[in-house]
Design a protein around this nucleic acid. Sequence first.
DNA 1: TGTACATCAGTGAACGCGCGTTCACTGATGTAC
DNA 2: TGTACATCAGTGAACGCGCGTTCACTGATGTAC
Lengths: 208, 208
Amino acid sequence: MSSYHHGHLRSTLLEQGVELARAQGPEGVVLREVARRSGVSHNAAYRHFADRNALLAEIAEVGMQRLGLAMLAEMDQVALEPGPDRARARLRATGRAYVNFALAEPGLFAVAFASVDVQPDSSDLSVATQVDEQVSPHPYGLLGQALDELDAVGGMAPDRREGAEVLCWSAVHGYAVLHLDGPLHAVPEVERSAGLESLLDQIQRGLG
Amino acid sequence: MSSYHHGHLRSTLLEQGVELARAQGPEGVVLREVARRSGVSHNAAYRHFADRNALLAEIAEVGMQRLGLAMLAEMDQVALEPGPDRARARLRATGRAYVNFALAEPGLFAVAFASVDVQPDSSDLSVATQVDEQVSPHPYGLLGQALDELDAVGGMAPDRREGAEVLCWSAVHGYAVLHLDGPLHAVPEVERSAGLESLLDQIQRGLG
DNA sequence: TGTACATCAGTGAACGCGCGTTCACTGATGTAC
DNA sequence: TGTACATCAGTGAACGCGCGTTCACTGATGTAC
């Protein structure tokens, strides 16, 4: 056992925290268990995170990053020529990826949106963000980008650009949440995907 | 103290549970506290509810009922002549009331949507539902009704009637949740209401 | 090159917490005769 | 009308749980001289 001076304990703790979040959601992120899985005594974590909330907040950030990456990947899947069709397809891609991510990674998604109320004493956090791999696209930013593209090619009514993020986001977020936790959690996947495409249609008509 | 044979302990417990839910959400519904507030020892509750989850499930039902009543009240506010305008206004009313209820009663809203996973041993539940005041409108039913009206007066594309509930519901639910828990919780009320009306516009365009 | 020492990153024991649930009980109520 | 008794609706004590957090500590590391 090279238990002393682990060397990368911080990142290990974060990793294990992420795994716990993936498997069991916010409740599952138990400080003692994170330490256990990292092969370290339960209070070693306090060397690296102020408290449980601070760890949770960083896990949330990882969740957001992964969500952003999933959206980006789906957007990049679109192979159409530049123009309204392409812009529309890329906007749809953001929404589709969002919902699919939520359903594929319910625990991480829940942590990402569980408002943790971090105190802004977080010089910690900003460091972590820097250290992380190259700038990763925030979901909200990607949505804005997709909407900008659509607007630029005349794919939407120009006076509807403002606030469009929130409208799209609400629809897609609600759809995800209702199927995740909520009353629609038993809807079979086929119907769910079909419903999702209808939802994306509706959003498009709402904008156009 | 006529502590023995309370006579209406069950309904008192439920009431207190609802109050706790309103004030503190699902976490706040602590069996021992419910009993305390009902002036009864903490295990008396087990005479009336199988366990904490069973109580929570009934509180959720009360939450749904109140949500339905709020929607109904807002719908009945619409004083227009029968026709497409009235149907549209009544549909908007369901959405507006939904979001406003969620923000006015966050705790109860959260409990109502926290899937409690009740075992279906619930002869209990069905009784409770009967005992309750006159048949109260379920939110989903009201939404369906509003959509039917709109469809009947030609206010929407007929091939979009199917599945329209889920589309409207998602948008409005997402809007509520993002402002409740989520990243938009700091948005000031004025903006929130304005955004809500935009959202309702968008839904309408999506259907029409 | 060696050494003294500050600092850092771990350890293990302990505390306090309040909960949900179960147990064996007891007092009140209603009913059959 | 009285009485015996089953049933019901409470009581109080106890259990087990695992957590987050704090405390005083110790071994490893790096650096100044």
